[in-house]
Write a protein that binds this DNA or RNA. Sequence first.
DNA 1: GATGAATGAGGCTTCATTCAT
DNA 2: TATGAATGAAGCCTCATTCAT
Lengths: 193, 193, 193, 193
Amino acid sequence: MKAALELFARKGYHNTKISDVVKASGVSQGTFYWYFESKEQLAIRLIDNGKAKLTQVIEQGYRKHAGTVDDMISSSARLLTDLFEFGHQNRDLMAFLLIKGQGADPTVREAVSQTWISFEDAFKKNVNRAIELEMIPKLADVALRVNILVSLITGVLTKWLFGPMQDVDYHSPYTPSQIAEETARFEFRGLLG
Amino acid sequence: MKAALELFARKGYHNTKISDVVKASGVSQGTFYWYFESKEQLAIRLIDNGKAKLTQVIEQGYRKHAGTVDDMISSSARLLTDLFEFGHQNRDLMAFLLIKGQGADPTVREAVSQTWISFEDAFKKNVNRAIELEMIPKLADVALRVNILVSLITGVLTKWLFGPMQDVDYHSPYTPSQIAEETARFEFRGLLG
Amino acid sequence: MKAALELFARKGYHNTKISDVVKASGVSQGTFYWYFESKEQLAIRLIDNGKAKLTQVIEQGYRKHAGTVDDMISSSARLLTDLFEFGHQNRDLMAFLLIKGQGADPTVREAVSQTWISFEDAFKKNVNRAIELEMIPKLADVALRVNILVSLITGVLTKWLFGPMQDVDYHSPYTPSQIAEETARFEFRGLLG
Amino acid sequence: MKAALELFARKGYHNTKISDVVKASGVSQGTFYWYFESKEQLAIRLIDNGKAKLTQVIEQGYRKHAGTVDDMISSSARLLTDLFEFGHQNRDLMAFLLIKGQGADPTVREAVSQTWISFEDAFKKNVNRAIELEMIPKLADVALRVNILVSLITGVLTKWLFGPMQDVDYHSPYTPSQIAEETARFEFRGLLG
DNA sequence: GATGAATGAGGCTTCATTCAT
DNA sequence: TATGAATGAAGCCTCATTCAT
């Protein structure tokens, strides 16, 4: 599993052969098919697994950090720090979800897309809750703002994790909290519009 | 090879067979290999072609719209409008560059990455010029800000063009100028941050 | 192994996986190989089993029904009725022996062929006995007549049991005795020829 | 094609590998897939081809031999002679249709069954025409009689062509016309009932 | 220049059989 | 005896590329 995810992340779905996966896992080709019904299902399990963990980060982050209006920016920054740290701990997963997944077959692509839809939904909940708590003002078009917000976040996350060359081994000079703070500034001001 | 680009955009690099390409182009398999030395080279030509046009948009936009400090936001918005409109006119190109390209082989992926590096460079020039002209204040870390800015822009562009399911046929309810203005608000305040 | 025979009958030898067989039998894969040394041997045991029962029908039928010349047709019809009833009670066996068995591997095919050779021998004995008893006249070429006779019987049996589409679940509109009588008419007149 | 049919006839569908077929045909594996979309389609083309030729024999035979009542038996015998000669000239086809075809996959099996349904239909037409011409009396149950008749004919054909061991290389001691005459005797008397 | 038939390496998957427990 | 995970040989098929015409 771990090995497979790393291969997908580095070489992409189509350039990862089942023979690569089993070699990296130290089992035989036949054994692979005892645990996974197909290459496609392997990818989907990997994705669904990751989706659960990723969504959890957003939701946990939210529950932990809800507070007064004054805490807003730092609260946002903390959530983003969590997210960026999660991304850093799960580079292979993020590389597959953010970059390589869309090169796969339709079923796999759909699973990737659904992951990001869940991600956006989780964020939308956060923003709506903040509005209810009057931490940020009522917005004319929440969906659009959240849309842009999530675009900003995934965009930054991708660049921070993988750099300009989309390299899985890239290491950004910025720490998670640095990038999170900087991003939160964009976010907060942008959200307040 | 419009047809090839469309196929790459819709089905991805590996799921596009050169037999599909020649069928869509109305030539024979043999003829294809007279014009292109390989599938890989076809993709790279397509990408390099697109890179030139894309960079031109940023540079033209910049030259056209530089002006007084007051014009800053609307100037930004106009550049983004140009960019979004270009993206809309060249959906297949953008789908390949933003989404599907990273699923291809290393050489092709590198060409895609280089495109976005050029894109970011062009933006960096714009921001530096704005600083020189004192349209925006000196920034502590231009590279980081521009990085985030470009992340924001490509993120929004992708979502606006292809929606949550990364669908080439998606059509956003927002016009280019609407989304550009909204994005510019994020951008400007973030940059000034 | 009722279950195995049913699978062989329905899906054929090669389309029956031993994993199917063990699933249908409620044992584990390993257990199967404790009882049977191979898939091939399973099939052969099934066939040999069936051969014994099938031959018995012919011989019993013969012994039971030998009688005076006047009884000849009805005696034949009774034997055929027995045979058709046996076939009906053992559809899976007959499907494997008559239809699916020849799609298997050489060793299995040979076992099937031997079954029908035994079958024909048993019939030949019947006819010779009838000649000895002067129930039917001396024939110029007993072997040929019996050959045709057996062809007729297996042909009718197959069609009656499995219909035009060779469907294991086919159910003929004719009763065993109806078809037996009709066949005996062909047989008797043909034999007397 | 020829080579493939021979392999199917001798080894059966599942024991004939595409690699065997291409070896026997002197082309590469890839070339096979230029001409046939799959192994299954190859078999089906072979079968449909054979069906056309086989049906033609019955229909030609019929047209050629229709005549007065007195010619009935010899007319039947001539048709059967044609059929047996055709079978002898096309042993591989007949082996696949009569014996090995039912060991294949469902789609292929269905094609085989359809062939014999066509065959029986062609015979039914012959019998009905003979009744119209008053060459044979009106029968109580034409379908049943024809059913038995066809069972008889395919049964004899199979045995004559391939012998007791279902061996493609078997050679019967009887000539086509000998076996045809003998069978016609069964047939005619049986039909007249 | 153009065609389309031919190639062959290599991928995914199946499944009878084995083996450690 | 019984289990079920593990194996690996081998099969079908794909597809980028080449080549004779």
